[in-house]
Computed example of a mutant assay.
Amino acid sequence: MKFAITDVYLFWWPVTVRMPDPEKAGKIVEQSFEAQFEALNEDQAHEIDAAFRNLESEEERRGHQHDVLRRVTKDWRGVLGADDKDQPFTADAFDLCLKQGWFRAGMYEAYRQAMAAEEQGDGPTAKN
């Protein structure tokens, strides 16, 4: 695959959420889905960091502490709602998930891996 220059680069990446098993005390269960991320360039990342640093109160910072995830996450697939049907990606659904520490940890780790170009999965590695 040849390198292509683009203003906006969107890609799908696997996300693994490790959380307490609801059935087995003291055990962890892994749940997976895919998120569509937008790669931020260096200027965009610095802009988000600067905006956060300029917030004046702790309350404002709490309200904006996960803005980077809100900015880079564009969609998801493989996420089920309470009715066991596909849950469409919406800002409200995403914010509800962000309230869980294990969800945030999985999302931050997935984005970090993607931006560090750490390939995932057991499939063949592309070396073009």
Rank of each mutant, 00 (worst) to 15 (best):
Ala110Val: 12
Leu98Lys: 03
Lys74His: 13
Thr90Ile: 06
Arg77Cys: 11
Val68Trp: 00
Lys85His: 09
Glu60Asn: 08
Asp75Phe: 01
Asp75Ile: 00
Asp75Tyr: 00
Val72Asn: 03
Trp76Asn: 01
Lys74Asn: 10
Asp67Met: 03
Trp76Ala: 06
Lys74Ala: 10
Ala105Tyr: 07
Leu96Arg: 11
Arg71Gln: 08
Tyr111Met: 04
Gly81Ser: 01
Tyr111Val: 09
Glu59Tyr: 09
Asp92Arg: 11
Phe94Tyr: 11
Ala93Ser: 14
Gln65Val: 12
Asp84Asn: 14
Trp102Val: 04
Gly63Thr: 00
Arg62Val: 07
Leu69Gly: 01
Trp102Leu: 06
Ala110Pro: 06
Cys97Asn: 14
Gly106His: 12
Arg62Glu: 14
Ala82Tyr: 01
Lys85Met: 08
Gln100Ser: 11
Val79Cys: 09
Glu58Ile: 13
Tyr108Glu: 15
Gly78Asn: 12
Tyr111His: 08
Phe94Ser: 03
Ala82Cys: 02
Glu60His: 08
Glu109Asp: 14
Leu80Thr: 00
Glu60Gly: 05
Lys99Phe: 08
Ala91Gln: 10
Phe103Thr: 06
Lys99Gly: 14
Ala105Gln: 15
Phe94Trp: 13
Lys99Trp: 06
Lys99Gln: 13
Arg104Pro: 07
Gly101Leu: 12
Ala82Ile: 06
Arg104Lys: 15
Ala105Asn: 14
Gly63Ile: 01
Gly81Pro: 01
Gly63Gln: 09
Thr90Lys: 10
Gly81Trp: 04
Lys74Gly: 05
Glu109Gln: 15
Leu69Ser: 04
Asp83Ile: 01
Gly106Pro: 08
Val79Ala: 06
Ala93Arg: 09
Asp95Trp: 05
Asp92Gly: 06
Asp86Thr: 03
Met107Thr: 04
Phe103Trp: 15
Tyr108Gln: 14
Glu58Asn: 15
Met107Pro: 02
Ala91Arg: 11
Arg61Gly: 03
Thr73Glu: 01
Leu80Met: 10
His64Val: 03
Val79Gly: 03
Val72Glu: 03
Gly81His: 02
Glu59Gly: 10
Pro88Phe: 05
Gln65Trp: 10
Ala91Thr: 08
Arg77Gln: 14
Cys97Thr: 03
Gly106Thr: 11
Pro88Cys: 03
Glu109Gly: 05
